[in-house]
Design a binder for these strands. Sequence first.
DNA 1: CTCTCTGCAAAACGTTTGCAATACT
DNA 2: AGTATTGCAAACGTTTTGCAGAGAG
Lengths: 134, 134
Amino acid sequence: MITIFVLKMNYSRQREAILNIMQSGLLDHPTADLVYAKLRKTFKKISLATVYRNLNHLAESNFILKIKTPNMPDRFDYRLEKHHHLVCKNCGKTIDVELRSLRLNAAALEQLTGFKIDANTISIAGTCNDCKTF
Amino acid sequence: MITIFVLKMNYSRQREAILNIMQSGLLDHPTADLVYAKLRKTFKKISLATVYRNLNHLAESNFILKIKTPNMPDRFDYRLEKHHHLVCKNCGKTIDVELRSLRLNAAALEQLTGFKIDANTISIAGTCNDCKTF
DNA sequence: CTCTCTGCAAAACGTTTGCAATACT
DNA sequence: AGTATTGCAAACGTTTTGCAGAGAG
């Protein structure tokens, strides 16, 4: 299946910088706020709204992934290959996980539930190492 | 393993009504707002804060389950047996899913990732039947 | 010239909190 | 009497939106 994304997009220095930040922290899954903090070093007047708009725009155009987390700032991911996420419900820490090795049968799950499970959007909530003790 | 919950709790008519609502819609996974709407029929002056406080309190005391959903109102569940959830990332619709039958090896997942996966808190994001087309 | 993009401020959204009054035990 | 709970309003944290000006094609 091939999907073509037609979203009009001009060049912008801010967006380029955002993509660079995403690229150079492939496993970081940063929040918009963290990207914002990094950008401010270069763009003294950039606004958080711009960061959100760009991250959303890039996600809609499938340049990056938006990982929605429960009651925590969303996270963004530059990695586009099929993979999934484990999100700490306490601190939001997000790590990649390959469900292939875990034998989760997504097809069976879809058939059973009627839900469509998007390639990149399986996210499992748990409690990460740092938050186990509380 | 036995866990004892010692939370001081007085009787309150509001809380009783909330528990009744939860009990009588076992598969509904209602949001706080929906519970609030139902309560208003009986309690004309009840406030949303009270609903949230009670639902949270009941969840902390393990009378009900709090299901945090990505960028959507949280949902609450009266069913306490070990089971998990599939949450539509578009409309928030939440359904039960027994991961046993899907061979997700939670133990392996925990070992691999260092995350602790709570018995009742595995939630997988997808797109439900009604939201598939858009 | 026409969009797109930006910064700013304000709004939106779901949820929590401070407070004084009330209910429970 | 002493806590737990309530309603209200205000605050919270995250994200989106309206707008007028700047930038890109």
